[in-house]
Amino acid sequence: MLKNQLQHLFSLEGVRMAIVIDPEGRVADEMGASNIRGEQLAAVVSFVMAESRAMATRLGQEQISMVFVEFRELALISVPLRNGYFLVVITEIGANIGQVSYEMKKHQDIISSFL
């Protein structure tokens, strides 16, 4: 189940939220911090992904592999899924970003299979 996959990502140390966003910028499923407004976050993150896609296209690439945005207090990692969906994980600063992104990529296909 999709929830189980998100639960796995959420269980990684330093992860505050794992969320799957649909092509229209709405939450398909989420797991994590209740103080983060998933719908609003989905809308702005889909905006980031759209701009990132524009950059990738300009560079002659049809796909993006990952978008990583770091702030002073948290980081956001986003990877594309099937059919325009994407998976976003929000971590605390100090989380093992290498491990989190590895797990995201590892579960990318499995999560896509539920969409």
Binding site: L41, V44, V45, V48, M66, V67, V69, E70
Partner: peptide
Amino acid sequence: DMLHAAKEISSVMRTGSFVHLTLQIPSG
């Protein structure tokens, strides 16, 4: 444009100041 989109994340949650954005594509 990417930068402005990323900064919008701060409007929906507490993020602290922007540090960097990395877009990874197959060619770099």
